[in-house]
């Protein structure tokens, strides 16, 4: 079987996979990083979103071998090394942006990407950016609110740093 190597959350990993092994399968079953979830098989729900070389992608819609040599960040790699929540994670907790938690890793990864690309998104821009992430619990209201709050906090952090 082919060998795949990549850097996941800063750690070099490798393993044997089949051609048909999806990245999400490699993460969940090969590396036991079970924070990345699978909610559909048509690449629509977004529970499996991770970052590959800095871009958010659906890890159920890319083969593990296609990520050979890549830098991968999963939800397990978002909090600080000391376990402290990132600004986005903390905002989701403060604003009750999650209920059952299943879509949450994908939402956090997506929100993190959004704020990197667009530090001060409007409500409409947030809602459009979440198009590929389905949540059945929250009705999105508090997810949007959490992202707005995170944007504001990151913005004031930036101002403070300058």
């Amino acid at each position: 079987m082919p060998q795949v190597s990549m850097t996941v959350n800063g750690r070099k990993v490798s393993g044997e996979v089949e051609g048909r092994t999806l990245l999400v399968e490699f993460l969940r079953e090969g590396l036991r990083l079970t924070g990345t979830h699978v909610g559909c098989d048509t690449a629509q729900c977004g529970a499996c979103v991770v970052h590959v070389n800095g871009n958010s992608i659906k890890s159920c819609n890319i083969f593990a071998l296609e990520a050979d040599g890549a830098e991968v960040t999963t939800i397990e790699g978002i909090a600080g090394k000391d376990g402290s929540l990132s600004v986005v994670q903390a905002a989701f907790q403060t604003h009750h942006g999650l209920q059952c938690g299943y879509c949450t890793p994908g939402m956090v990864m997506t929100a993190t990407s959004l704020l990197k690309e667009n530090p001060a998104p409007s409500e409409a821009e947030i809602r459009e950016y979440l198009e590929g992430n389905i949540c059945r619990c929250t009705g999105y209201h508090n997810i949007v609110k959490a992202i707005q709050a995170a944007a504001a906090e990151l913005g004031s952090n930036r101002v403070a740093a300058e």
Partner: peptide, 19 residues
């Protein structure tokens, strides 16, 4: 009160059946 269960869900440490 902020939800205590959120910390595990937000950090990928939830324990769902498939895990």
């Amino acid at each position: 009160t902020k939800r205590r269960e959120d910390v595990r869900f937000l950090t990928g440490k939830g324990r769902y059946t498939d895990d």
